[in-house]
Design a protein around this nucleic acid. Sequence first.
DNA 1: ATTTATTTTCAGTAATTTTTGAAACTTCAA
DNA 2: TTGAAGTTTCAAAAATTACTGAAAATAAAT
Lengths: 168, 168
Amino acid sequence: MKLIEAKQQFISSWGAFGTHWGINRTMAQIHALLLISPDPITQDDIMEGLNISRGNTNMNIRELINWGLVDRVILPGERKEFFIAEKDIWKVVRQIVKERKKRELDPMLKLLDQLEDVEGDKRDKNVKTFVDTISGIKRLGLQADKTLDIMIKAEENWFVNNLIKIFK
Amino acid sequence: MKLIEAKQQFISSWGAFGTHWGINRTMAQIHALLLISPDPITQDDIMEGLNISRGNTNMNIRELINWGLVDRVILPGERKEFFIAEKDIWKVVRQIVKERKKRELDPMLKLLDQLEDVEGDKRDKNVKTFVDTISGIKRLGLQADKTLDIMIKAEENWFVNNLIKIFK
DNA sequence: ATTTATTTTCAGTAATTTTTGAAACTTCAA
DNA sequence: TTGAAGTTTCAAAAATTACTGAAAATAAAT
């Protein structure tokens, strides 16, 4: 397979993959393009590379920066801004985990706390089933919270090596 | 908080949570409703409980069954079908992991294999960056594949206990 | 200060996804 | 068999989400 073709394929697939995970297609594609670009590139490069509008490009780059996956770069002597993605895929995963944890898991745990102490007699099976379900989810959530925290802080090799050892 | 209110809150939040993970709101809400229902319930119960149409209900129940999260139940003497959800939240997670792995990770790994042997000179930095990116993702993907397989097969306690021990 | 290059915003439009509801289909009891 | 109860399908409508492009804002050069 030729490089041009392979790049296209990767960008397109990465975009489709993203949509299955609640990430918008364009954002995932910009990320893919940056991942395989050896040097920093401009908004115009991205617009041209993916055939998308300036506004769309700008909004999604900003979002990628918010997620901590892309950095703005100022090159000396250049007027335009350039962009570059973190290439170490393990760091990328940790960053995504960190953000999703903050945005989703933490609020969910807060909610579960409130729901857990619902009024009512535990002998009522409606109450019992509700409380048991919430407690079960909360227990799992707390475990995930702890585990992910350690994962986020961990050094790449430490974590991977641990997994390999444990799960072999 | 009253039970009715708490149930509403849970269903609504579970739905919102789902949309962040590429799961449609209604499907997540039906799942939530089934999780907190002590006894099997019918399509009509769900329609009424969530204020949604028959078609929508039917399609999303079917999808939940495809995901292995909900079962059809025939009650003796009843004409209608009833539905029930797996309540053990750890089993639920394992089932979701299993399905997403099959639907998403496996195809992604297949793609990466193809992309990895792109034509061209490795001294060309475009080729090098591309191949390095793909290889990096593949390495991570293979590791995830292995780990998740073991997790899927694992007994609940075995796994949770392991995690607790390892990550404390 | 003025011009020029670049970035950002956002109202309107387009594309996609979800939902509805009625018709078609199936199942079962009499 | 017939028909009543229940389930499934799917074309059209509604809702949501994403994208465009031009105008406004910002920044840099002259």
